[in-house]
Amino acid sequence: MKKTLRILFGVSLVLVSLWVIRTSSTFPEAVSAGKKIPGPAFFPVLLSVVLIPCGLHQAVSALRSGTEAAGRRWGSGTVNGAIVILSLVVYVQLMQWMGYALSTFLFSMYLLLRLRVGVLKALAVTIITVVFILLVFGRLFQIQLPLGELGIPW
């Protein structure tokens, strides 16, 4: 797994660098006192030129490393990781709709229960976290926490 990933990573670095070089070629040139000087494309192209050998190095050294080393197991852990990311996306969507407090409550409860925390403990942790953020961010620091389209005042 690690070998494949490293090859993929190396190749995608090279591809990204090539894309950057191509995109940068459309940037206008810069002029100072009538003379052409390195413009907006200069720095990204320079970095890409450094990144391409770095990416190749990744890919080649992975190819040479021989057999697939036994890395981490990709079992239930991967599922948990994917669930965290997915629920994060859902959480952000919910927050835009129902505001900060309610969405955070649901998100926190769901994840805690999913990670096998007891119901009462989960409830306590969730309520304390939600209220703490409400007080510290919202009241103390006067940060506008998301209101949501439902317009619940907190």
Binding site: L88, L111, K121, T129, L145, P146
Partner: peptide, 18 residues
């Protein structure tokens, strides 16, 4: 860990937003 990580996650979200 399962509690700390959820708290870290929520603070990460609210902190990035804020």
């Amino acid at each position: 860990r399962n509690i700390v990580m959820v708290i870290v996650l929520i603070f990460s979200v609210i902190g990035s937003y804020a």
